[in-house]
Simulated scan of single mutants.
Amino acid sequence: MNHIWETGAYTAHLCMQDDVWDAPKRDRGRWSGDLDISGRVISDVFGDSLLLEDTLRNLITGPDRTTTGIPDYTGLWITTLYDLYLHSGDRAF
């Protein structure tokens, strides 16, 4: 079990670049579907809320804007925002 946990934490850490990327060796994209899962891991393992905030912000306003216009991705963006709030308690963000 420890090896599985360490592998998951290591994988999440690889995705933590300027913000949270999916597949840093492949497409290096931001995806709210992947962030919904990896965001919870990052919050639990590393306690990093700033990187998650930047990624959430970039998903809506950044050059990719992969969240806007896709209802499923928008829903996952909202659940990630809610999970971030549960972990950080930051109402201002």
Rank of each mutant, 00 (worst) to 15 (best):
W21A: 05
R65T: 00
G89A: 10
Y73N: 14
A23Q: 13
G47S: 12
D44H: 13
D22K: 12
N58Y: 10
T11R: 14
G39M: 02
M1T: 05
H87F: 08
T7M: 14
V41A: 13
C15W: 05
W31E: 00
V20F: 04
V45W: 09
A92W: 11
W31H: 14
L56C: 10
D34W: 02
W77Y: 15
F46R: 03
T80K: 10
L81W: 04
G62Q: 01
W77I: 10
A92M: 05
G29H: 13
D90W: 06
R30D: 00
I78S: 08
D83P: 01
G89C: 07
D34Q: 14
L81E: 01
W5F: 11
F46Q: 13
W5L: 15
Y73K: 14
D64M: 12
L84I: 02
L86N: 07
R26Y: 08
I78L: 14
K25R: 13
I4H: 13
T79F: 06
A23Y: 05
Y85M: 09
A23T: 07
R40N: 08
E6K: 15
T66Y: 06
E53K: 15
L51F: 02
Y82L: 11
G89D: 02
T68V: 11
L50N: 15
D19N: 11
H13V: 06
H87G: 11
T68W: 01
W21M: 01
D48R: 14
E6G: 04
A12I: 02
A23R: 12
L14Y: 02
L56V: 00
F46H: 08
H13Q: 11
T7S: 13
L76D: 11
G62K: 10
D34C: 08
H3I: 12
E53L: 05
W77F: 11
D54K: 15
R57V: 03
L59C: 07
T67H: 08
T74D: 00
D34N: 12
G8Y: 10
I60T: 09
Y73P: 00
D18I: 04
Y73R: 15
G8D: 02
D44A: 15
T68Y: 03
M16E: 02
V41S: 07
M1I: 05
G75I: 00
L81R: 13
Q17N: 10
G39N: 06
W21C: 11
T67L: 11
M1D: 04
R30S: 03
S32C: 10
N2Y: 06
C15K: 05
A12T: 01
W77N: 11
V45M: 13
R91E: 09
T80H: 06
R65W: 00
N2E: 01
G33E: 12
R65F: 00
R40V: 04
W31G: 06
P24V: 09
L14S: 05
Y10Q: 14
S38N: 06
G89T: 04
D19F: 04
L50T: 09
